[in-house]
Amino acid sequence: MNNSKRARERQTEIRQILQEREVVSVNEFCAHFGASIATIRNDLAYLEGKGYLQRVKGGAMSCEGKARSTSVAARLNLHKDAKARIAKELVSSEIKPDMTVILDAGSTGYYVAKELARQKIPCTVITTSAKTMMLLAPVEGMTVFTAGGKYDASQDAWHGKGALESVRDM
């Protein structure tokens, strides 16, 4: 690992950029710094090892600072093996045929939906997630209800007063 002053300055700036933007690609970092892909990947690996960022497909996102609203696309790639294991365990041990399951628009909820579809458990799902709705709607024996409200493309979900009223009225 290059620990030169230049590398440390670049790594500090990478952290600052990630605080301002949700996800930054390796290619964007390369263009910004005029550095090679190998250099940027080494920096990202080093910073990930220190807990400052999480590498995602093609780039990185910050693990620092206050929690912020990240897109579902970014969250789906974070800790996906752990989320898949959680979903498999939950569906196998807790969800029985003909149950009603409520899944929010979170990324772990989507992994639960994927596992429900994989196991083809006939049940009713209430969700605010468009991704979950589209995944489960074609599964035989699956009944899917979505909540209305304003659609937020970055979260791939419906939010707002209409969403709450729709679920309460079911």
Rank of each mutant, 00 (worst) to 15 (best):
E94L: 03
T70M: 06
I126S: 09
V125W: 00
A60F: 12
A113R: 02
L135V: 04
S129Q: 07
E140T: 11
Y111V: 00
V72W: 06
L116E: 02
K57R: 10
A38T: 04
T100E: 09
H79K: 15
E89R: 12
S69T: 09
G59M: 09
T100I: 10
I37S: 13
E89K: 14
T39S: 06
A73M: 13
P138S: 13
P138Y: 14
A105D: 07
L103M: 02
A113P: 10
M61C: 03
A67D: 15
L103E: 00
R55K: 08
A137Q: 08
G58R: 07
I86P: 03
A60D: 09
S129D: 03
D81N: 09
V101R: 05
T143V: 15
A130W: 07
G109W: 01
R118D: 00
R85Y: 12
L76R: 02
L116M: 04
Y110F: 02
S107D: 05
P138G: 12
T143S: 13
V56M: 09
A35C: 08
V91C: 03
S69E: 12
V91T: 01
G106W: 01
A74T: 13
G59Y: 11
T70I: 13
A117G: 02
G49N: 09
V101I: 13
I37A: 14
M61Q: 05
M61Y: 13
K57A: 05
T70Y: 10
Y111C: 00
T132W: 00
K50W: 15
A45D: 09
G65Q: 08
L135P: 02
L103V: 02
A87G: 07
R118S: 04
L47T: 11
R41E: 02
S129G: 11
K83G: 01
C123E: 11
Q54A: 06
D98P: 14
R41Q: 01
D81I: 05
L47Q: 13
S93L: 09
M134D: 08
V56I: 08
T143I: 12
G51L: 01
V139P: 05
T39I: 06
L44E: 02
H79G: 13
A113T: 05
